Simulated scan of single mutants.
Amino acid sequence: MFDVAAMRLTLTGLAPATVVRPGPPPVRRPRVSVVVPCYNYGHYLRSCVDSVLSQPGVEVDVLIVDDASPDGSASVVREIAAADDRVRAICHDRNRGHIATYNEGLSQVDGDYVVLLSADDLLTPSSLARATAVMEQHPEVGLVYGRAVAFSGDDLPPARTTATSWTLWRGRDWLADRCGTGRNPLRSPEAVMRTSVLRAVGGYNPELPHAGDLEMWMRAATVSDVAFVGGADQAYYREHAANMHLTSFQGGDPKGVLVDLAERTACFDNVLGGDPRWRDLHDLSRRTLAREALTYAVRSFEWGKAESWPVDELAAFAADTCPRPALAPLWRALALRRRVGARRSRRHPLFLPGEQVHKVRARVAHRRWQQAGI
Rank of each mutant, 00 (worst) to 15 (best):
W217T: 09
K255V: 10
S196A: 11
A227M: 09
A191N: 14
D275E: 09
A227P: 00
S285P: 03
L208F: 01
L198M: 09
L246M: 14
P276Y: 01
G256Y: 00
V223S: 09
L281V: 06
G203R: 07
Y204I: 02
A242S: 11
R279N: 02
E263K: 08
V271E: 02
T265H: 14
A211S: 12
R219W: 08
Y237T: 00
R238Q: 06
E207L: 14
R291T: 10
R264S: 03
E239P: 05
G202R: 13
R277F: 01
T295M: 08
V257P: 03
Q234E: 10
V192T: 15
G230V: 10
T247F: 13
V229N: 10
R199D: 12
S188T: 05
D233L: 04
D269M: 02
R277M: 03
T265W: 13
L208E: 03
A200S: 01
F228L: 09
H245F: 05
P276C: 00
V192C: 14
A293H: 11
L294A: 07
W217Q: 09
G256H: 03
P254Q: 06
Y236K: 07
S248H: 13
S188D: 12
S248M: 12
K255T: 11
M244N: 05
V271S: 00
G202Q: 12
E239Q: 07
L246C: 07
W278Y: 15
R277C: 09
L284K: 03
M218A: 13
M193W: 15
H282N: 00
M216Q: 07
E239T: 04
